[in-house]
Design a protein around this nucleic acid. Structure first.
Lengths: 237, 237
DNA sequence: TTTATCCTCCCCCAAAATGGTGAGGCAAAT
DNA sequence: ATTTGCCTCACCATTTTGGGGGAGGATAAA
């Protein structure tokens, strides 16, 4: 059985387009003998992609109702690091319970397990397995397969990132040390005067760095430059 | 052997303080028979913690020289999603090569493998294994153990997050939709006037959002607020 | 139902940031 | 050896932000 999983991992690794990922989710679902496997991600431009085995009806419904903005699975995972069982999410609001009821009606399954994955520049993805099982059966399934699922989720995400970067590769301009320092201090909320004092240079000089960084980053003002430097992982606050 | 690994995973899971994580890195190093295992992380407040087997001399040297700001491993992983072999990083600059040379002299090892891990609220961590090996030996070590290392890294991070949240829970200030929109437009480089136009509200109203966001985020100016919103993953540009 | 949060609008004025232009010394890379 | 990039300093007028105040209506949770 493990060999089959290896093969599936390789299948994901060799995927050449989103269709292959779609196919991979179907194979995984069959392999695990559960209701659904879904992977979807949001790239740094806020565009969404998905591959999974949910029925088209449910996907349409989901998009139509803009459930993404209230789905407790999404909201919960956005604030979490570790994989989460759907049972542990916040279903307290009326809207959330109605949503869950509807999801079950559409065949999503009454049990679910979602793995959040984050990349640089705000990339966020979710890998989900769901099924109809009782609590005990689901718990033992998760216990047994969680780690494999995490590895597979990782493979999916690697691919998703490849596809994204294939689209347009931002060469990530390098900033000089002083420029980085300037950006860092500004990101910490210092004024130019304060940052200049911290760096022990004149405010005029500091401005030169800021402007240089702005140009390199293609930013139109300081806030924009700091945002880009952060997004691209050039500085850490 | 696998059982031993399981035991180590459990050891990490049962860690009660940073000292236990430290001890875990030592056991992992011995288990894998390599030079070093290091885990270090930056929490949402920008504080750094670490647990690992590097010599105190090297750690002191690293802090003293503020190598964090130029270490190609850190810089590279901040821009990456997937685990990376040190060989694949950017060592082109003179400073980077000098740094590497020095690191080797301090016994860090000439080969390394680092796994970047991201959590919500801008949490960022790095799990690193390093050793002295030739390219082939290292490659086969990585090939064989990468997945286990990823799982272990995940366990470390789970613990680190627990400790952080245990210390003092930063309640993760939630911004309202309009506040988020305002932050997003500002992060894109728009002026208040432009953002207001984009949101189809008066500039005065926009200012209310910006100030509300500033206060919620504990930021002292707009740039700071945008930086925090980005760091904490509240907005994506 | 009450309470809380959000959304929207308005005033004034001081302080800070921006944009454009210019210039010299120094180190590294080609 | 020449070019390129980095670090440092300066002035001007204009635009943008920041800080303080106050107020009404809608919506949603408790």
């Amino acid at each position: 059985m493990k060999e089959r999983l290896e093969a599936l991992c390789e299948f994901v690794q060799n995927a050449e387009d989103v269709g292959d990922l779609q196919s991979a989710t179907e194979q995984l679902r069959d392999y695990y003998e559960i209701a659904h496997i879904v992977y979807h991600w949001v790239n740094s431009k806020g565009e969404r992609f998905g591959a999974g085995t949910y029925s088209q009806d449910w996907v349409d419904r989901y998009v139509e109702k803009d459930y993404l903005r209230m789905d407790p699975v999404i909201l919960g995972c956005l604030q979490r690091f570790n994989p989460v069982d759907w049972k542990d999410l916040d279903w307290s609001s009326r809207a959330a319970r109605a949503f869950f009821k509807e999801a079950v009606e559409y065949g999503v399954g009454n049990q679910g397990f979602s793995i959040p994955i984050r990349g640089p520049a705000g990339q966020f993805a979710l890998f989900t397995a769901s099924d109809n099982k009782d609590d005990f059966g689901w718990a033992s399934f998760i216990d047994e397969n969680m780690r494999d699922l995490m590895i597979i989720a990782h493979e999916f995400n690697k691919k998703a990132l490849e596809f994204e970067q294939g689209g347009d590769s931002a060469p990530a301009p390098a900033l000089s040390p002083r420029e980085l320092a300037a950006m860092t201090y500004l990101a910490k909320g210092m004024s130019r005067a304060q940052a200049a004092q911290e760096m022990d240079i004149s405010e005029h000089t500091l401005r030169v760095y800021i402007e240089a960084a702005r140009h390199k980053l293609g930013a139109i003002n300081t806030t924009h430059a700091v945002a880009r430097a952060l997004s691209r992982g050039l500085i850490v606050v």
